[in-house]
Amino acid sequence: MPKQSPIPDELDKPFYDACNAERLVAQYCTSCRRYQFPPRPRCIRCGKDTAVEWRPLSGRGRIISRVVVYDTPTSSLIPGQPFNVAAIALDDEPEIIMLSHLPGTPVDQVPVGAAVEVIFETTPATGQKVPEWRVIA
């Protein structure tokens, strides 16, 4: 699936730099003791910006839901329709949800509840890597 290449900005550069090094990180609020993603200027719960730091994640998660996209607005993905999009709850913080096309999983056969692990996929336009996920047997 030829994904769009995300263009990092000042706020999320640490996340995308880590992706390029094939490491998964997220913001963590040391005051609230919880992760958040996507990156934000401050903790969405306590509002502090000084308490937020980048921390590594285990790269493990679980599929909690899925859809099958038949009519995407994103031009580069149209040729690949229909395709899966799964919601991945991270083991480190189950309320953090990341998305995945679940490469290798046939359309409409997403094993909801299954364990997954992160892999990194290179996006064609800029070479920026992004997290993807694959089902662990």
């Binding site: 769009q4 290449s5 995300p6 996507p38 859809v67 995945s100 996006t123 992004v130």
Partner: peptide
């Protein structure tokens, strides 16, 4: 229609969700 994604939607738009 772009092959890059910027701004706050980049975390979702690259997955092509309508």
């Amino acid at each position: 229609a772009l092959n890059t994604a910027s701004g706050r939607f980049k975390y979702s738009s690259i997955w092509g969700l309508p």
